[in-house]
């Protein structure tokens, strides 16, 4: 049986070294570039007509725009429009990385914890900076829940701080684990199809077809979850709602 983890291996396509740092162009880099190019193609080439009545591709670009714009408007509220380009980029980048990963023989960028963690860390650090920039030291009040007995406060503050600090972990692990588990599962069942042959392979094949549909849903859903949690964290930092 082929190794189901083989698909996640990083292969250096072009060895590069920038000031002692390994900046090799890998299969992961290739798919990140492809994802970025797809997004740019959709939003710039798709919008080239600037038509009053949109073409199909322009419609997709506009729907993506409005989808993320509504998400930011509903979840971040006032002052959220500044961060809309970031949330849009984040959503589209993750979405296209996930979707490109669904193609056979492709590489799923978001199945690597370092990638998802880096994005989650950027969100976490950025949100924390925004919180302190906006409220100064008063942002610490965010960790003090209102309307609880004073005796419970030390415990609750500790819990709040821990839950705040685990945000990047949960955010990154959720996306990474979903992607990795789904692709591993597909690979394992693919091996079953081959292993059981023409006689017994139909059952795992049918399962794979259904599971591929589910994975496409997950690919969209995880991009959405990542973006909407970013919006919610931004809202916390901007308005300190609890």
């Amino acid at each position: 049986m082929p190794d189901p983890m083989h698909q996640f291996e990083i292969k250096r396509l072009v060895e590069l070294d920038v000031f002692g740092l390994d900046a090799s162009f890998t299969n992961s880099s290739l798919f990140m570039v492809l994802a970025a190019m797809c997004v740019i193609f959709l939003t710039i080439f798709g919008m080239r007509g600037r038509a009053l009545v949109p073409t199909r591709m322009q419609s997709v670009a506009e729907i993506s725009y409005e989808f993320v714009a509504n998400m930011v408007r509903d979840n971040v509220g006032s002052g959220g429009q500044r961060y809309f380009p970031f949330v849009f980029t984040l959503f589209m980048f993750i979405l296209f990385c996930n979707m490109l990963g669904m193609l056979p023989y492709s590489f799923t960028v978001t199945s690597h914890i370092i990638i998802t963690f880096a994005m989650a860390a950027v969100v976490f650090i950025g949100v924390t900076i925004i919180g302190f920039a906006k409220h100064g030291i008063g942002f610490l009040k965010f960790f003090v829940p209102s309307g609880v007995p004073v005796a419970l406060l030390p415990l609750l503050v500790v819990i709040e701080v821990i839950s705040y600090l685990t945000r990047p972990v949960s955010l990154s692990v959720r996306l990474f684990a979903n992607m990795m588990a789904g692709h591993t599962m597909l690979k394992v069942f693919g091996a079953f199809v081959v292993g059981l042959g023409v006689i017994g392979g139909w059952a795992p094949l049918a399962f794979m077809v259904a599971f591929t549909g589910l994975e496409i849903l997950v690919a969209f859903l995880q991009a959405y979850v990542f973006a909407i949690l970013t919006c919610i964290y931004l809202n916390d930092a901007l308005h300190m709602h609890h």
Binding site: I10, D22, T26, M32, A36, I114
Partner: peptide, 12 residues
């Protein structure tokens, strides 16, 4: 990790 982070930064 390094090449992935590098290219993530560049592309993103």
């Amino acid at each position: 990790f390094a090449p992935q982070l590098m290219w993530l930064a560049i592309t993103f």
